[in-house]
């Protein structure tokens, strides 16, 4: 009983983590299923056919590639624009700062249906053709705010003395930026870009409003849900999940090892 009371919080914490992963486990398990009917909902029979023929169903891989392209393009532009705003906010004094902050905050406080539908209203009023570019435009729009917040935090957390030291050591403004500021902010920018990409790649609502006849991966899944999602979709999603998680875990592990070495190095002296 005492043991339980002492470890109550860790136990609840781990249960919550398990809860987060149950649906993912279901998706993964069902990727090895051979469904009885057209809906891949209940376990029927083990099969590797989806994995062996991952692009076997028309549209799956095509929409997947479309989402990749949109995600990369929107992330690139959104990250550059957002980083620029973050630098302006932290490093310069200018009039209109609070308007800028409001303009960054509002898209994050606006539900996706409103973001999607208002853009659609604009495109309709302008008779602008819907498709690849309208989705890219929409994704850049919502990525910017997230990037600003992340990069701003990183910049504010940086010791101002580092840049002073650079200037003291014969680095002019450009050189200071290139050799000190940028390398130090880069991890924050990359983190923001990763977040932006996963938001874009996984976005359904805003895309659905502005895609016209374009089919992104989430739009494909939504459409397929009505008539039965092909097992290949589960396989592909599982594959993405495993690859992404592996990359992040490996980089975390390398970080951890490095830190351990640092600590060992320090105590050795």
């Amino acid at each position: 009983m005492r043991w339980l009371r002492k470890n109550l919080i860790p136990i609840i914490g781990i249960l919550v983590l398990v809860y987060l992963f149950i649906p993912i486990a279901v998706v993964a398990v069902l990727s090895f299923n051979k469904p009885a009917g057209k809906f891949n909902i209940a376990w029927n029979e083990f099969s590797l056919s989806a994995w062996q023929n991952i692009c076997g169903v028309p549209g799956v891989c095509g929409s997947f590639v479309t989402s990749l392209e949109i995600g990369l393009l929107a992330t690139l532009v959104g990250t550059i624009f957002g980083t620029m705003i973050a630098f302006a906010l932290v490093r310069y004094r200018f009039r209109g700062r609070s308007t800028t902050n409001l303009l960054i905050f509002l898209p994050m406080a606006t539900p996706e249906v409103v973001l999607g539908s208002s853009l659609l209203a604009l495109f309709l009023n302008l008779a602008f053709p819907l498709g690849f570019w309208t989705v890219v435009i929409a994704h850049i729009m919502f990525i910017i705010s997230f990037v600003v917040v992340a990069v701003k935090a990183r910049l504010q957390g940086m010791d101002p003395r580092l840049e002073e030291a650079a200037r003291d050591l014969y680095a002019d403004a450009r050189s200071t930026f290139r050799h000190v500021t940028f390398p130090l902010v880069l991890p924050g920018i990359l983190g923001a870009a990763l977040l932006g990409f996963s938001l874009s790649f996984d976005d359904y609502i805003i895309s659905a409003f502005n895609a016209g006849t374009l089919v992104t991966f989430p739009i494909y899944i939504w459409g397929a849900a009505q008539r039965g999602i092909p097992v290949q979709v589960n396989a592909l999603a599982t594959l993405v999940f495993v690859i992404a998680l592996t990359i992040v875990l490996v980089s975390q592990f390398i970080n951890y090892r490095r830190r351990r070495m640092l600590e060992a190095g320090m105590s050795a002296d």
């Binding site: 003395r161 580092l162 002073e164 030291a165 003291d168 050591l169 130090l184």
Partner: peptide
């Protein structure tokens, strides 16, 4: 040149 408080070494 300056030796900064808490050094400001480039990490």
């Amino acid at each position: 040149n300056t030796v900064f408080q808490s050094y400001a070494l480039f990490p």
